[in-house]
Design a protein around this nucleic acid. Sequence first.
DNA 1: GAGGCGTGGCG
DNA 2: TCGCCAAGCCT
Length: 366
Amino acid sequence: MRAAFREALPAWFDGARRPMPWREPGPDGRRDPYRVWVSEVMLQQTRVETATPYFRRFTERFPTVRDLAEAGQDEVLKLWEGLGYYSRARNLHRAAQQVVADHDGEVPSDEEAFRALPGAGPYTAAAVLSLAFDTPLAVLDGNVIRVLTRVFAIDADARSGRTRRQLQDLADVLLDPAHPGRWNESVMELGATVCTPRSPACPRCPLNDVCQAYARGAPEAFPVVSKRAPVPHHTIAVGLVIDDASRVLIQRRPEDAMLGGLWEFPGGKVEDGETPGEACVRELREELAVEVEVSAPIARVEHAYSHFRITMHAFRCRLVSGEPASETGEPIAWVPIDALDDYAFPRANRRVIEALIEEARAPRLL
DNA sequence: GAGGCGTGGCG
DNA sequence: TCGCCAAGCCT
C-alpha cells in the first residue's frame, strides 16, 4: 500500500503534472517560498483555472514579500477582486508585513513561526513548507480526503474532527519523507484530475489496484459528508446616487464584515411590508443621513454567497436634501462612473455597474 | 464543533 | 434551476 503511494503515484505524477506558474523554479533552481505561499492562499477553496490569472497579476505587481507589505490594502483587494473569501487577501497582506517586521522579509521555514502568520492554517503550512523547503509535513485538503477515503473505503463523516485526525494520521504514514513536496503534489494532482468528486477516471488511476472504493464499484460513494442546511434568501435594495458631474456615491465596507474592505453602493435589506424602493430610501436615510427619491430601476441581480442568496434591486436616485455623511464611520466617496473600475467591488455590485454603464449608453425611454 | 466566509462551474 | 463543490481558516 505504502509502495503504491510512494512509487506508482509519483511516477504517474511525473507524466501528468500540469504546468502552473507557481511550479516554475526560480533562477537558483528552487521554488520561491513567497510565490508558493501566495498560490496556496489563492488555491484555498478555489480551482487552479480560476486562481491562475489572479496569481500572475498579483505576483507581477508584488514580486516579493516586501512589495506586498508596502502596498495599501485598497490595491491588494483590487487585485483580489472577484476571487472571493477576501479575508484571505487581508490576512496575506498583514502576514507579509509581519514577515518583514519579524523575519527580515524571509518567509519562515519553521512550522511554528509560519503558523503564527494570519491565514496560515495546517494545510497552508504543510503545503508551503513541504513544497518550498522539503519539510516532511503531509497536507490534508479536499483532494487528499477524497483520495484516502476512497482508497481505504472510509465511510465515517469526513468533516468530523475524529475522521480528519484519522485521515491526517494516514497521510502522515503514507508521506514519502524523502520527497514530501512531490508526494503532496502528487496526491493533490490525482484528486484534482483523476480522483474527481464526480465521474472519477478510475481506469487510468495509478492507485486503482489498491483502491477499495474502486473494487466495490462505488468510488463516488466517498467521501461521506452530511448534507448542508438550505441557505436563506434576502432581498436587497441599493441606491445609485449620481450628482451633476456624473459621479456615483459609494461606501467602503467595514474591515471585519463579510466582503470587508470592498466598496459598494449604499443600501440594505428590504423588510417585510416594504417595497424595494421604500427600503432604498430608508437605508440611505439611516446610513448616510440624506433624503433621496427613487427615480428609475437600473438592475435586478440574483447572487449566491457562500451561506445565503440575495436578489438585489438597484435604483437610480435623486438627492433631495442633505449632504451624504457616513453614520457608521466607514469611508464614502464620489466616483466618476468611468472610474468605478479603480475600486474593488463585490460581484453583485459589479453586475449593477455593468447595467448602469449599459443604461448610460442606451437609456430606456420611459 | 459549528458556522461564517465568495465565486464560478458542472451535472 | 439548483445543489454541490474547489489546494481552508477563523471565531
